[in-house]
Design a binder for these strands. Sequence first.
DNA 1: CTGAAAGCGCTTACAG
DNA 2: CTGAAAGCGCTTACAG
Lengths: 335, 335
Amino acid sequence: MNRITIKDVARAAGVSASAVSRVFTEGASASVKTREKVLAAADLLGYRPSLLARGLVSNRTNMVTLVMGRMTDPFDALFMDSFAEAMARRGTRLMLSPVRAGASEEDSLLQALDYQSDAVIVSAGTMSLAHSERCVRAGLRVILAGRVLEAPGVDCVLADNRDGGRQAAELLLRTGCRSLAYLGQGGATFSDRERRDGFGMAVAEAGATFTEQGVGGREHAEAFSAATELLSRLPRPDGIFCSNDNIAICALEACRALGLAVPGDVAIVGFNNLPDAARRSFQLTTLDYPASKVVAEICNLLDLREGDFGRESEIRRIPTQLVVRSSTRARDAVG
Amino acid sequence: MNRITIKDVARAAGVSASAVSRVFTEGASASVKTREKVLAAADLLGYRPSLLARGLVSNRTNMVTLVMGRMTDPFDALFMDSFAEAMARRGTRLMLSPVRAGASEEDSLLQALDYQSDAVIVSAGTMSLAHSERCVRAGLRVILAGRVLEAPGVDCVLADNRDGGRQAAELLLRTGCRSLAYLGQGGATFSDRERRDGFGMAVAEAGATFTEQGVGGREHAEAFSAATELLSRLPRPDGIFCSNDNIAICALEACRALGLAVPGDVAIVGFNNLPDAARRSFQLTTLDYPASKVVAEICNLLDLREGDFGRESEIRRIPTQLVVRSSTRARDAVG
DNA sequence: CTGAAAGCGCTTACAG
DNA sequence: CTGAAAGCGCTTACAG
């Protein structure tokens, strides 16, 4: 019932609490003999250092806080899974701070301060300069995933969204599409806007027709009906770039429901390359954007922090790679 | 750079640290005047109580640890999302302790002790009696999600898997299937075994043919090939119950690839009722098992803890509900 | 290498 | 209601 403390171990091992502490500290200075006695006693008693106490005194908790939104897209789970694995691998504790529906997201961010996290990773919502400054001032490293905020002490990791959009446009144009559309989230997220912009600019440069449609919510039905609406426009788009695979799959289903052939009548490109995109039922052409690469960059940024404190902010772009499947036409259809 | 502490606030407000502490404590005894002064000073300075210090002294951290495995199934994300939301709503902090591939899961469990979590929710791996006892002895509430362990101080929340399996069998039998199969994870998880048992028993009671097939891994391709193998057996199964929707969708695709009609030649039932099951492309009959109900029971159990300490362990079963779509036959095909 | 002492930021009896 | 004091479990200079 009562916690085994450093004193219990010290008593059992016949040494001071300081000695026990040193044995449990990286790069300590303890004799082999002391170490052995302490380790034996600790093991016997089942001692585990209180990270609460350690954090309080040392001001380093070896813990990061992940500020996250609702996990509505499968990509969120891939990211979370990969991130949790990575943190476990480097021995960093992970605290979750969900942005509550209706609550201020400032709250979620500031919660990272309460347990003295070493860093806060923000993968949800929008963050203001003011809040990030407060965290940075408190000694936290702030890393934004999926969004850019140019602020001192804030690093950003995200896809090269514009380039992805451009690649999608180029593929569609190259394979004969002339009436292009963007089916996205109506500018609801930073990534959505960037993908649209990259796509739209490339379409404009080629002098092709461009239109866009926003999806109202996160449900499949909403994406389906937005796609249906888009497909009923005149001229009907013959090439659609969707802001993510989930929306793209709904668009694919909308085409089928309308009796439109994919890619014959309409070609579709997604974003993320989720496992579902590779299913036989969909065979979706998409832009591969591996969550593991985002996580790898975040870890790298976390490591950088250790040494350099006055280091400049960085924005790291993960390149995306086109994966061509059968929701787009096989080759050049124009002369 | 330096943390604002209770002393800073006390000084600014012209009161003692005790007074500040009381203002920030539920049900404190502080005069309106003191409260106002303290709150004003705290607000001005941007004071946030250190939860590290508070936890250390009060022995209650208002934090729970979630021991989780890899999030390979979409259901994991639904659960995580719902759980994180619920914890945020009740003001409970959430720490993640992933079970590392290759590492002992004991580690993940014991990490809950390091920050003095009030409770640990285990949704991954298998837990031994010995480890659960250690946590209970340390004053943690232990709640298992998706598995049963009969141990003092350990509560369990999971689906009524056997009944779900039975419902699946009854539907398939009622709609004319005579050669039934279970496509699962080869007994890899507790839930998988229970679902198979419930299904198998009902099939046996009806005197129908029963066979089973295990899926080798978590990839779609593995489920697809296991389904293909199952469908090549003689007599070919005409009704398949899959341990989850993801496998069921792969089985559906395997049928289509083999030119078998669903539900005409083969009827398929899944488990979970993921959003994907409702897609037009699949229209999968499945057992609805809402993550939010699991979470609600966990929250309820968490609340119970507060008062009663010698309370007996509980096993809470969430009923599942059949959702009939078009991967099973519409009605009785026999006379 | 080792131990005694001070202190991290808080809460909690204890007097007043 | 309020403040001074002790203490939560640890680490970190500081002497030895």
